[in-house]
Design a protein around this nucleic acid. Structure first.
Lengths: 223, 223
DNA sequence: AGTATGCAGATAGCATCGCTATCCATAAGC
DNA sequence: GCTTATGGATAGCGATGCTATCTGCATACT
């Protein structure tokens, strides 16, 4: 198919597809003549993956390029891809990390990981992310949230185990790689959305109940 | 204190503080003369909150303004603030929602919420977010991730209950409002970081173990 | 009193990101 | 032969989050 049809079938504008080609997110089609290239169903699939990463996963163009490049490598194991996927979902914006307060928070983060017995690379970016949040919660003086660290970690671990099992359940290497990426990026979006829904439910049950006694009957609290 | 000291103590550049003043994120200091204003510790605190929301929470300037405006209102109950906080963590980017595939996903999202017995406003933005992810997972043909919806929801609910309880445990209304915001925005960042750490741990234990038998001895799988 | 520094408020500029629009020569389709 | 579409290149655009500069005045130091 040519670019027009690719555009129609994917819902992505032609200039945008050209932009992705320029940026190396999408492989060029097979050139037939100076101004004719042929795109396959694989291109369509790839385009859908790109849009999912960008629109739903919130991944940047350059991170998406890295992820896609990694997907194309046959020498990577699923675990190796995790680093790339994690990098993709790691925000670039972050607070000033060159302060004593931040370094203290980073120490606390490392200590927490160690106490949990988690096996995590010493330079994993998620350690810095955790330190960012710890430092922020301390400076805004909200230790209550940090008191729940264990609850957060327990939820996170049980989720992570389910996700990894989902990948492991697959035999084919190529499929596993895709699932690592999708599980990491879209899994995060999935959880975030569900957390907000659960948040609203829990809040309605526990907070609103106090002020407005006549709640929807039979709303379970799921304990 | 004057703006220079506020800048030094907060680590925020003077022009940036002026920008926040213009944008209505920070209240003007008490004017003493045409070009002299006085800032209090409350301003410093507020500035730290702003930086936490922007840098760690990834909230936009305009959402931060909404959140801060809501914090200042005395007529709001904690539950009312949830909507504002949720809006702040809801990304503006989203896939095309004007397709049949998306509407199907939205129906599936509503059905999921209903099955769970969750009490959630029909127009809650998180419903759309959930539909976004469901639609994306379907178009990239990764139903495996969706098979774990229940696991995700269970984790999300237990987390949400802990978070709501943390807010409820506080008596003072003003503090509760702050905690709703911090719990929603920074709680998300906290969970995301912990999930990545747990992800790496679980992956190391289950995936890398297969190819590289000599793992760090005694790494528990926390089952 | 004189000088240097700092301040408030206003306006303009800037870097990045993710597209979008335009142009050109060529090929396809009717 | 004529319209339309294409590939490739280059330039521009709108939003975001600052950053820089200017002006007139207050403050601080000496």
């Amino acid at each position: 198919m040519r670019i027009g049809e690719l555009s129609r079938r994917s819902g992505v504008a032609v200039p945008t597809i050209k932009y992705y080609l320029r940026e190396g997110l999408l492989e060029p089609g097979e050139t037939r003549a100076a101004n004719q290239a042929d795109y396959s169903d694989a291109h369509l699939q790839r385009l859908r993956l790109i849009r999912a990463l960008l629109d739903v996963g919130g991944v940047s163009i350059s991170s998406a390029r890295d992820v896609i490049a990694a997907l194309g490598r046959t020498d990577l194991q699923p675990h190796d891809l995790l680093g790339v996927a994690h990098h993709a979902v790691t925000p670039t914006r972050h607070p000033d990390r060159d302060t004593d307060a931040w370094r203290d928070a980073r120490t606390a983060a490392d200590q927490f990981v160690a106490e949990r017995g988690w096996f995590v690379q010493p330079n994993a970016p998620a350690r810095d992310q955790l330190a960012d949040v710890i430092a922020a919660l301390r400076t805004v003086n909200a230790p209550e949230v940090l008191d729940n660290l264990d609850a957060y970690a327990t939820s996170a671990l049980s989720l992570a185990e389910v996700e990894v099992d989902t990948v492991v359940a697959r035999g084919e290497a190529v499929r596993m790689l895709e699932l690592v990426v999708l599980g990491t990026v879209l899994g995060e979006a999935l959880f975030v959305a569900l957390r907000l829904l659960a948040h609203e439910h829990a809040s309605m049950v526990r907070l609103a109940a106090a002020q407005e006694p006549s709640l929807p009957a039979g709303t379970p609290s799921q304990n």
